[in-house]
């Protein structure tokens, strides 16, 4: 992890980089202990993880959303206007932001049982917003795009002008697969007779896809473990004087 330490100051005679590597290595080993069984070491690492990451999320949300999108354009100018009217011409507050602030504050109505139904307003607003957004998006990104990609000639011409039977066969299989898979998802009829047979073929296609998806992911997952092994071998072990004759990561 070359990015581990941007600064190389020292604490108690140890460089922050070395401390960082040790912290990371111990936490790494703590998590792996879970593979044997749940244990106090894993629990400590897990709770550190929860605390640190929840705070990280909160701080990032503060700097990237609250500060630039609400505090700076609305609250600070508003305060300026009220307490420092002499500076009023600096920036005018964006009053429309009072709406999301109001909706956001309504969420706190959950603390007051009598008015907790008010918290439904912001939820309804946000859910409606994304529901609306998803309708044209799904049509454009999935339905039209994938339909376009599926309308293939079953007997295409190859590069040399002759017929390309192999591609034609693949195209036929692709179209069949799409139709059969769709048939599997048909809900309002019994899967018997023709529909039953077609949807059965659909299930076969699904199984091929899932098998392939599984097999294709194995390499990526093993790579993740390789990454941790490399960290322990080439970054951590050297700090206790064990140098393995391998290529370093940085």
């Amino acid at each position: 992890m070359p990015a581990a330490a941007a600064t190389s100051s020292t604490i108690f005679g140890l460089s922050t980089e070395i401390i960082g590597i040790w912290v990371a290595a111990l936490l790494t080993l703590a998590i792996y202990s879970f593979l044997y069984a749940d244990n106090p070491v894993y629990k400590v690492a897990e709770h550190i993880f929860v605390g640190i990451s929840a705070a990280y999320g909160a701080v990032i949300l503060y700097y990237q959303a609250l500060l630039p999108k609400l505090v700076k354009p609305l609250i600070i100018p508003l305060i300026d206007r009220v307490w420092h009217p002499e500076l009023a011409d600096a920036t005018s507050p964006r009053y429309t932001l009072l709406v999301p602030m109001f909706l956001g504050l309504l969420i706190f109505s959950r603390f007051v049982p009598k008015y907790d139904w008010l918290s439904r307003w912001p939820i309804a607003f946000v859910m409606g917003l994304y529901a609306g957004l998803s309708i044209p998006r799904s049509v454009q990104e999935i339905i039209l795009k994938q339909m376009h990609g599926t309308m293939l000639p079953l007997l295409p011409r190859g590069a040399n002008g002759g017929y390309d039977f192999l591609t034609g066969f693949s195209n036929l299989l692709l179209v069949m697969g799409v139709i059969c898979t769709l048939a599997y998802f048909y809900f309002s009829a019994r899967h018997e007779g023709l529909l039953g047979r077609v949807s059965r073929v659909g299930v076969w296609f699904l199984m091929v896809a899932f098998g392939a998806g599984f097999g294709n992911t194995v390499m990526a997952r093993i790579s993740l473990l390789i990454g941790r092994v490399q960290f322990l071998l080439y970054d951590w072990l050297p700090t206790i004087g064990i140098h393995l004759g391998g290529p370093g990561m940085g």
Binding site: V23, A24, F49, G227
Partner: peptide, 15 residues
């Protein structure tokens, strides 16, 4: 972040 959260993430991921 780099020495606590990132390695924890990478390790959980590598499980």
């Amino acid at each position: 972040f780099m020495n606590v959260q990132v390695p924890l993430e990478a390790t959980i991921f590598s499980l």
